[in-house]
Nucleic acid binder design. Structure first.
Lengths: 129, 129
DNA sequence: GCAAATTAATGATTTATTCAAG
DNA sequence: CTTGAATAAATCATTAATTTGC
């Protein structure tokens, strides 16, 4: 499972609590709140603060994604002149293009550091654990 | 200066050390490295780990920006057929368009965020700090 | 010279995107 | 495919340069 070195896999009870908090309006809990939530959720399984932090980040972002898709879909069904797949295709084209601009001549060679151990020094972070 | 609640303002010596590390190839130091660096830089003025973390993030990102601009400029001066301002304008157009897609019908009335206190766990979770 | 007004740098957060485990 | 984890890009906010009118 994940004693040792695997990623956190939330228990159903933990998810229920997290979603309840989210539906209650919580979006970016601060350190203290995160600690308390982690402590509470610890009753149901191993968990640490950063898991709670990431859960909110991801859930918020992915709700936005869904919302965006729904809106796009709604627009597509309203307007007969341009179909959904057209919108979708155009969006992809644009994204690729933007990515192109962004990564234009990025490398410069240089240091082959490719950093090893990563870490999340998260905003509002302090010696969790 | 910044005892209390202002933002970190790096001393010249601190900057020199940070830049030396950066030029040496360091990009995303891990927690241990950050702590050591912060400890070292603490000799020259108050500093904490997250300042070091943010410094590397920002410095890396802004070096990329400069690089990108330089590359774009170089391309522009090489190729007479398409001017710099053209590239710049097209980039902006695309970015706006992408942003448009992203923010399309974003709100949709969702939660009135700052409402409801909720949940038996976390006594008094509102009004943190 | 010298503050008020603007603008450029940059520390700190948030959001978007990507990677990879399962 | 879903989603935890991590990085990169965009944005916000405050401070320092600098310009400008007196």
């Amino acid at each position: 499972m994940h004693p040792g070195g695997a990623r956190w896999s939330p228990m159903p009870e933990q998810i229920k609590v997290l979603e309840a908090l989210y539906n209650g309006g919580m979006r970016t809990p601060n350190t203290l709140q995160i600690e308390r939530i982690a402590e509470e959720l610890g009753k149901y399984g191993r968990i640490e603060g950063k898991n709670v932090f990431y859960w909110f980040q991801n859930h918020k972002a992915r709700e936005r994604q869904k919302q965006k898709r729904r809106a796009l879909l709604a627009l597509a069904s309203d307007n007969g002149s341009v179909g959904f797949s057209d919108l979708k295709r155009e969006e992809e084209r644009c994204k690729r293009k933007c990515r192109r601009w962004s990564s234009c001549l990025e490398g410069e060679g240089g240091h082959s550091d490719r950093t090893l151990e990563l870490f999340p020094l998260l905003p509002e972070w302090k010696q969790m654990e």
